[in-house]
Amino acid sequence: MRLPPYAALLGAQLEYAGDGTPVMRMPFAEAVIGRPGFLQGGAISGLLEVAAIAALRHALAEEGGGRIKPINVTVDFMRGGRDHDTLAAGIITRLGNRVANVEAVAWQDDRARPIAAARMNYLIERD
């Protein structure tokens, strides 16, 4: 799957959950540190966006492919990201003919305790 170049800058790697859905893993590294011992908010936001794109491209690939363009993004920060790997996954809430609505959540130790969440809308141009 093709990911945005920003994924490489974050050091984010694509993994797959047991059900085959994409999950992004971002290791804690110098490039993503904000204040000492914590992730920078932009890195968390970027990871959420990459996770949403991965989920959307995965779903579109199953339907023959397509291109996407972001319309808007809203991020909610819930707690500070500590010095651990961070995981993120996108959940498509609506995949229409021209617009997709995607939620993404980032967590570290426990998916039930997210550090941030986002809602994104994308314009779709199907192949």
Rank of each mutant, 00 (worst) to 15 (best):
A8W: 10
A8N: 14
A8I: 10
L10W: 03
L10D: 04
G11D: 12
A12H: 12
A12W: 09
A12G: 14
Q13A: 15
Q13G: 15
L14W: 02
E15D: 10
Y16I: 00
A17C: 11
D19C: 01
D19F: 00
T21F: 05
T21I: 05
P22D: 07
V23A: 10
V23K: 08
R25P: 12
R25T: 13
M26E: 04
M26N: 06
P27N: 14
F28Q: 00
E30W: 13
V32I: 13
I33L: 03
I33Y: 01
G34V: 03
R35Y: 13
P36V: 05
P36G: 02
G37C: 14
G37L: 11
F38I: 11
F38R: 08
F38Q: 08
L39C: 06
Q40D: 06
G41S: 05
G42L: 04
A43D: 13
I44E: 04
I44F: 04
S45G: 04
G46I: 02
G46A: 09
L47R: 04
E49D: 15
V50I: 15
V50Y: 09
V50N: 11
A52C: 13
A52V: 11
A52H: 13
I53A: 10
I53M: 10
A55S: 08
A55T: 07
L56R: 07
L56S: 09
R57P: 05
R57F: 12
R57N: 15
H58G: 10
L60K: 03
L60Q: 05
L60V: 08
L60I: 10
L60Y: 03
E62I: 04
E62R: 13
E63V: 12
E63W: 05
G65M: 12
G65T: 14
G65W: 11
G66W: 01
G66I: 06
G66P: 03
R67N: 14
R67H: 13
I71A: 07
I71S: 06
V73W: 09
V73R: 09
T74V: 13
T74K: 11
T74Q: 14
D76P: 00
D76W: 00
D76H: 08
R79D: 05
G81P: 07
G81M: 10
R82T: 14
R82I: 09
D83G: 06
H84A: 07
H84C: 05
D85S: 14
L87T: 06
I92H: 00
I92Q: 04
I92M: 03
T93H: 02
L95W: 02
L95D: 00
L95K: 01
G96Q: 09
R98L: 00
N101M: 06
N101Y: 03
V102D: 05
E103R: 12
E103Y: 02
A104E: 06
A106V: 02
W107H: 12
W107K: 12
W107F: 14
W107I: 13
W107M: 15
Q108R: 07
D109W: 00
D110H: 10
R111D: 02
A112T: 14
A112N: 14
R113E: 11
R113F: 01
P114D: 07
I115C: 11
I115S: 09
